[in-house]
Write a protein that binds this DNA or RNA. Sequence first.
DNA 1: CGCTAGAGTGTTAGCGTTCACACTTATCAG
DNA 2: CTGATAAGTGTGAACGCTAACACTCTAGCG
Lengths: 338, 338
Amino acid sequence: MSASASRPPVMADVARVAGVSHQTVSRVLNNLPNVRPSTRDRILQAIDELGYRRNLTARALVTRHSRVLGVVSFDTTLFGPASTVHGIEQAARDAGYFISIVSLKAITRDSVEDAIHHLAGQGIDGIVVVAPQRQAARALSSIPDDIPAVAVEGGRARRVPVVSVDQVGGARLAVQHLLELGHQTVWHIAGPEEWLEAEGRLKGWQETLEAAGRPVPTAMTGDWSPRSGYEAGLRLPSSATAVFVANDQMALGLLRSLSERGVRVPDDVSVVGFDDVPEAEFFSPPLTTVRQDFTLVGRYSIELLLEQLAEDPPARRRRVVVPATLVRRRSTAAPAGA
Amino acid sequence: MSASASRPPVMADVARVAGVSHQTVSRVLNNLPNVRPSTRDRILQAIDELGYRRNLTARALVTRHSRVLGVVSFDTTLFGPASTVHGIEQAARDAGYFISIVSLKAITRDSVEDAIHHLAGQGIDGIVVVAPQRQAARALSSIPDDIPAVAVEGGRARRVPVVSVDQVGGARLAVQHLLELGHQTVWHIAGPEEWLEAEGRLKGWQETLEAAGRPVPTAMTGDWSPRSGYEAGLRLPSSATAVFVANDQMALGLLRSLSERGVRVPDDVSVVGFDDVPEAEFFSPPLTTVRQDFTLVGRYSIELLLEQLAEDPPARRRRVVVPATLVRRRSTAAPAGA
DNA sequence: CGCTAGAGTGTTAGCGTTCACACTTATCAG
DNA sequence: CTGATAAGTGTGAACGCTAACACTCTAGCG
């Protein structure tokens, strides 16, 4: 513990104290072989004594690897993105990487490109773009060629592997569940058009109805917020007996407007959401919904990224799809007439 | 666009193309004066031509500043931490800084210290610790002296400035609101003991009741989850007419258990939450709650951090308190007997 | 006409690591 | 006892940038 508060100690200081060369200190730090145990101990002790911490900036300069991964995301306040980023962070840390985050207020192609270049200039080893909007997905092509990247929910990006949840399959699960209960058809409150997730759920809903030979009602569109679900609920025709809502927040709004109109759930109308937010189980009534495993999505995205970072570029999987699962609770039942 | 995909261009390459020295390129990049406009243009063109991006790692090595700030947080899936981190990120980016995040699964003194050292070794310019638990607050003392730091919700940390929401005041607002409506007393479902926020809300609740000369019921304790609020609701005595719940999620659970028991809100029991999550407005009934401005908290924390980073260390404010506000909705009313 | 000031530019030396070697010493086969 | 091999260690040169200073040149002054 040197009293001089001048500069933090560097490798050379450790070397001097331990009576070796800086290179030997480096070897110990990097767990390389061919260091005599007694020497190693002396160095370790010197490190401890001086309170030495290796300067990762210098290391990054020479190795050309910062062990930092960049993440570009949108509104990390929402449950989905927040969970995904959390999953990414956990997986990255387990792999010994740091995460540098840029969270966008607005998704425009420009803002995404900006964020990407920002990160690229930062000496990052790779980038994960959580790109659930069409705009963002388009910006993927502007990622510099020399930077490994992965997209989450990024449509079919050209040069970038994609991890996504099976939105279409999830929607199918929801609609099939309602049809099996005996409903003639299912209404849909969709997410904003520019969102790929909204698109997938809409598609799954429509295809499933068509496959079953059922009429396909006009879809209503919300903006993911509870309020928009509430408003969609006001426009829902009284003939409807089942609604598939593109996320749980809008489902909550729908539940509220139905209850205000005296419509009982599930007696009069069945409702299925999407996401399985922690609150969903305690809605009135507890919400049947489609669960997405965001943690797994985060994990896979890091896995795909690290694969690209590896020495031997493997025949890289271009796309990983995480299945969605149906969680049955009390907001769905057979229609009144059944 | 050089066809050789060998190495990304460096400053010297730009210098060669522009016919100047690398130092002049550096001057242009750093917007220093005394560069002839025509020279500047030539350099800018060369940069463009080569697709040159400055290596920030090398820059950081020599300047000893990375322009990266570290953030340590807990479970960024929760609304509060997620919003705070989001606010921090926005504010930091506006100031030209990057954010490197470590999100902890468990808060123990060790895990926090670990995260801090992890970041410290990363060549970070400063650290924000979102430390809402007593454990985490204690770990603040282990931040190396040479690294500027700020704590969010960190109790009264010793050497570290703190930004926090006025939990006590928020709780007072909630309880006063209920007393003014005519309730004799107010029950409380508290958060986990080790959380400072839970402690502040508990304290505000208790003090306000005492100041009004009202009996103070035994507080129930949850773990922030809707389920724990639900369970607390089952234990709520039927004599209770008003409940102040330490967060919105638990309030949701309470609402649910009350409705299952046939207790009407607000007719039979009034409920106030804390946080004002986006969903709160659409609970059944819409929840009266205390709003915390997390964005502001994030903003202030970066402000305090940048103050420390500035050339002239100002007489530093040791503590910034952000006020909480009451949002009145439909879950509160006068008691039945009033 | 020489001198100074300042604009404009180049040169050199780091920053704290790792990498590619070269070197020394001990070990062992022949 | 010699030479080859391996273990253990040191030396010097990068990595790509900025800081400090030195230099050149023009303008302006007495």
